[in-house]
Write a protein that binds this DNA or RNA. Sequence first.
DNA 1: CATCTGGAACCAATG
DNA 2: AGCATTGGTTCCAGA
Length: 893
Amino acid sequence: MSTANCAEELDFRLIFEEDGRQTAGPDLHARTAPASTQALGEQPVNQELQSHPPCFSTADRYQSQGPQYGAQGNLRAFDCPSIQITSIAPNNHVEAEISQESLAAGGAEGGYFEGSWSRDQLYLSLEPCYRDPALSASPCSSLSSRSWMSDVSSCESYSNVYDDVDVELHDAARLALGSPVGSPLGSPGCGGGAFGVELWQQKYQHPSAFSPSLSPYQSPRQSPRQSPCHSPRTSVTEESWLSRKPNSRPTSPCGKRRHTSADPRARSPSPHHSPSPTPGASPRGSVTDDTWLGSPGGAMGSPPDVWLLRAGCPLQDQEDIRESAGPPGWCPPTSPGTRPKPGNPPLFGASAPPPLDCPLPSQFDQFELKIEVQPKSYHRAHYETEGSRGSIKAPDGHPVVKLSGYSEQRLSLLLFIGTADDRYLRPHSFYQVHRVTGKTVTTTCQENTMGGTKVLEIPLLPENNMSVSIDCAGILKLRNADIELKKGETDIGRKNTRVRVVFRVAVPQPDGQTLWLQAVSAPVECSQRSGQELPQVETFSPVSCSVDGGEELLITGSNISVQSRVVFAVKGSDGRSLWEMDGRVVPEKSSGSSIVVEVPRYNKKVTAPVQVQFYISNGKRKRSLTQSITFLPGVRRHLSSAAEPQLVKQEHWELDPIAHNPPGFSPDMGYFDSSDLPVPCGPSSQNMPHLHHPPPRTTPIQAPLMFAHTPSSMPSQTSSSPHQTLIPLQPSIMSPQTFTIPPQTSLIFPQITMPPQTSSVLPQTFTAHPHTSSLPPQTSSLPVQTSPIGTQRERSPSLSPGRSFVTPTDPQKHPQLSSPGEVLNIKQEPEDPPNLRSLGLQEITLDDVNEIIDRDISNLSSSVQPDQFDQYHQYDWEHKSNDAALPFCGGPQ
DNA sequence: CATCTGGAACCAATG
DNA sequence: AGCATTGGTTCCAGA
């Protein structure tokens, strides 16, 4: 599978170069142009400008990374590169322009368009990933790219942009302040309407990003076209901005880009792969990027130390780094005067709120924005042609978000729909938040548009303890065709149906600055079909077992049946399946919401723990995301967990202190046992994007590069407390959630401290543990502050030491690594995402980086396993066929 | 009667 | 080119 598949995906990039030139280029124009044209014609438009922000420091990392990271970081990243690209790529006008801008970064995307640039290869290499989350770097939609794209299709667009700038600025300021007050901007009612158009306009037409100071938030007010209507439905219509025929269904396909290789630009690698691949960063992202770029502090400016490091790296390397690093850290303050630093607090000037795709921590100092009740993992979004399908719900009521550490005055909680792919978090191109009204809605909120993204402003009141139940937020699905046809849009909608609900709040600080915090929900599947057909793993236990097999693994989730298969597999570094075996389902212990299988025996000799992936399959293309379980060599679980297969007991178990120990520390199995504690996988598991790209090693490295100097205090996006630690990181599991690293950890692995983005990448939270865990069991058990599943936390404490449920979201729980030495072994086995490696991309880009990494790693080796990170990658969304390997490649989740 | 929901038909894209 | 599958979007109907 893997290899081949991966190759394909990767090829994407290659294709670019080659095919892309030939085919892609033309296609683009053909397709895009028309589309854009249409759009243009219909829309009044302000054209979007793509801003070509200068390279931003933060961006740097991205820059290197390339196109993949589209939006935020990406752009920036691209910027630098882009320059060259520009010159190189003759094909696109856009390119030219972009290049100037430094959009170059976007260049990546540009590359996307055409493979013309020779030099681009760097980008190209990345590109494959572009759509392929697996590949990792998300090529996606780099902001720039989109912009580029759009530009390409129509240069005209540039023109109107600026008109809205003022407004945007205004908005931005307002937002920054977190004024509860709804700005007139977004009229509450507005927006809903012709969404497609709106988006269009917003995204493309509003270049808010341009001015450095502008933040994504700044949204141009509504474009003329935007309808005041609240309900999408209403507006919709007109909507047919695409000129779709009245009766004709707008099939998305319409100008849709093909996923197939035929169209290189198109997205990428097979759509299949990445479910969430959102490619992208959509223009929005770009916007932000742009913004960033524009910022003085921009990449070009003075990069932080870490960044500097990056800067020093060759593009390729940088890219690699980026990949490994994952999403960029939170954005540094955009304010001119401030120099962004990785370790800097998420403070922004009132006039320059962070772009929506800018990663932010969920906690800082005593302030913490937390999702106390996570939304359900499935919420069927409504189309404009449908009536509202209600607000996002939680298992018991509605999601609840709380700001702790502050209660001085009323603040505005911002809510928007973000991506749930493996890449950094950014506004979702195909979904928008929608204000739900009605007698059952008790929360008042306003709907605004920022940088093309709908944002709900919900009051956080001191009298409510700064906590609010989100019962006024629905999710609107925009037609793929509408979005994809927009110029500049590089993301594909197909199979990109998972989102995350993003909450932000601006906390006024004594010094006049504004502290921005962000909390990201677990992934939410918004497609009717996917929600009803794809099996989803919510929890499983135990999380480790003997290589001898025979133990029973209890998996809970949805869309599971006795007919479901549970496939265990180990992938080689090349992505090939080294071993694959079905677990024997125990029908009598299985039900509609859970399944018990006997873990198969691992037929290879191992001396160290092996990370084995498993997923539930309801048939071809109906697979859950890949989860990871640790097979312990030579360890026969005599331990409680082993002895008692009954997962059911989990609830009764209590955390074992041992569990807290960092992986690798305790040679004895106790360590593993701890891991056994049932951990909720969180809905996200599936959602979790796979980090496809980064090889095990790279991951660690990244961190260092990025955060070497980051203060331990930096919170991850979702993570809440710095202390959570005990649990070893498990890459696979980690994906979607937040990534929290304890201060201690940071000392050891600065690298670990990933930027918020990283966290975004991984929806779930995971915590790095200090070597020793002095923390109370609870902490360890509940490592995930932001765990997708709110209830999980509570659950974990009760769990017995012996077992644990693992949620994809809660990587922390995984015990995995044992000792450093083991780690090495593990790595070998591990299923690294074949993607890059298999393609050889790694070598290409990462080589240089490796040296650095090695250095860093040597220090880290003991504490964290690289594999963990890798595991991430393993997730597969759906493989096209049955390739087990595919998942690793980074296909869609 | 309007809204919310679940289900499914229709149909283009994909393989 | 034709066929089967997949998945997005629209419709319908019941609560």
